[in-house]
């Protein structure tokens, strides 16, 4: 399926959706949103791209094998829980820095955990998508 309307629209929608997914990710710990939803939106953006241009193009756009995304995300999430060990607290105790950033608010380990979730969700969703669509060769 090649539709010029969809292809043109996707070119503009993809960056917007990715920006929106970041927005969802960063507001997650104070307001509705978060890593999981953000990750789903981001992978929906890539799914849209693969519908418009084909799976091969989407893979090229992603550049990196989804397995590495899964591994990176898991590692970030695990690491965010282990930061508490440095101050001899229990696993996953939230640590907040005192710095206040204009966009994100306070930075802390929950944000790092959310970032990990975000990356894992993108990785897994795209892995599923690529696996399912690879086999459908008419």
């Amino acid at each position: 399926m090649k539709s010029i309307i969809l292809q043109t629209a996707t070119r503009y929608l993809l960056p917007m959706l990715l920006l929106f997914s970041f927005f969802l990710l960063f507001r997650g710990h104070n307001s509705p949103g978060g890593g999981f939803v953000g990750g789903l939106v981001a992978s929906a953006a890539y799914a849209l791209y693969s519908i418009a241009f084909g799976v091969e193009e989407a893979k090229k756009l992603l550049r990196i094998e989804p397995v590495y995304l899964i591994a990176t995300g898991l590692m970030l999430a695990l690491f965010s829980g282990m930061i508490a060990f440095f101050s001899f607290d229990t696993f996953m105790t939230a640590k907040w820095s005192d710095l206040n950033f204009p966009l994100f608010g306070k930075l802390g380990t929950p944000l790092l955990f959310d970032l990990g979730v975000y990356i894992v969700v993108i990785g897994i969703t795209l892995k599923i998508l690529f696996t399912i669509s690879e086999e459908v060769k008419p």
Binding site: F36, I124, I128, T131, I132, E135
Partner: peptide, 15 residues
Amino acid sequence: VIGFGVQAFAIVLFK
């Protein structure tokens, strides 16, 4: 979230 993952796997397996 768990249901999402499990059902995705189940669909691929059944297919």
